[in-house]
């Protein structure tokens, strides 16, 4: 690629590479380098010169680890008492319920927006006749998905607590809004990639768009969609904790309180439960995915 590569006859190809691609690549590298340095400068300038030294970072982190293990408490560490584990069990249950509800709502949202978000069903070879209507529905639904997806769960949660009572349901809805955007996009891509032959046969037999969806598209894509749903559940369970900060439910809420009351061994227990919950959900989702095949 570069000028130092083995000598070749001066073809058009070579002059093209040297004359155009090499300087452009150098420019890309330069731009990347300057943006990264600029970003670091911008971020570190936010500290107003009060940056901790690496040594401070290490000593404080080690001190924090000691706190988590119970070095700074006189009472028994939370992870050794039965009551604390029962308390954590309840919180884990709430968190699980929140994530399952979120996936349920997002799954329904995905199925409801499946047809209008699919290019193939709306305007492709299997398409409806009302083209203007179909096209505008497509753009509208895809745009909605992009917005739902572009806004993080946490920001949805911050908006939702103005409307709903804080709790599990508010958190579940915030998660579901973001997930509907993600799953809607994934699902419409799957429908657009599916085998068109059954759809064409149905179409030529006089099926309408609804029948096309029910008998042609859904049976083909449903296993794939459920697999996606289970994959996303693994992502959602992590985010559930974060949404809990805002909507006051589950492990996230408890973590926030324990951190602000500086009850370090409780923090340790919550983090432990969190990691275990994520693993549990990963294992459950994996075995359920096997059933979908």
């Amino acid at each position: 690629m570069t000028a130092s590569s083995a000598p070749r006859p001066p073809t058009l190809q070579r002059s093209h590479e040297q004359g155009l691609v090499a300087p452009r690549r150098a420019a890309v590298v330069a731009v990347a380098f300057f943006s990264v340095t600029g970003a670091w400068w911008f971020v570190l300038s936010q500290a107003n010169g009060r940056l901790p030294t690496p040594a401070t970072v290490v000593t404080r982190s080690l001190g924090f680890l000691g706190d988590l293990l119970g070095a700074s408490t006189d009472t028994a560490p939370a992870y050794t008492t039965f009551e604390a584990w029962r308390w954590i069990g309840e919180l884990v249950g709430d968190t699980l319920v929140m994530s399952v509800l979120a996936m349920g709502v997002a799954g329904v949202g995905m199925l409801l927006t499946l047809a209008p978000a699919s290019r193939r069903i709306m305007i492709g070879d299997a398409g409806a006749d009302r083209r203007v209507f179909a096209r505008s529905a497509l753009v509208l639904v895809r745009g909605t998905h992009a917005i739902l997806r572009g806004v993080p769960e946490l920001i949805w949660a911050m908006l939702i607590v103005f409307v709903l009572r804080p709790g599990i349901l508010a958190g579940a809805l915030a998660l579901a809004l973001h997930e509907t955007g993600v799953l809607g996009r994934l699902a419409s891509d799957v429908v657009d990639d599916l085998d068109v032959h059954p759809l064409r046969s149905l179409r030529s037999a006089g099926a309408g768009s609804g029948q096309l969806l029910a008998y042609g598209a859904l049976p083909q894509v449903l296993p794939q969609l459920i697999t996606f749903l289970l994959y996303r559940w693994e992502v959602v369970i992590r985010a559930t904790v974060v949404v809990g900060f805002i909507t006051g439910a589950g492990l996230g809420h408890a973590l926030r309180l324990s951190l602000s009351f500086r009850r370090w061994t409780e923090v340790a227990l919550i983090l432990l439960a969190y990691v275990l919950l994520v693993w549990l959900v990963e294992i459950a989702a994996m075995s359920l995915r096997r059933l979908a095949r």
Partner: peptide, 24 residues
């Protein structure tokens, strides 16, 4: 896997506790 299991915002809260409010 264990590092990844913890959400970035939880990491942020932990670092906030350890380091105080710094861009780091």
């Amino acid at each position: 896997g264990a590092l990844r299991a913890i959400h970035e915002l939880v990491w942020a809260l932990l670092f906030l506790t350890i380091l105080g409010l710094t861009p780091l």
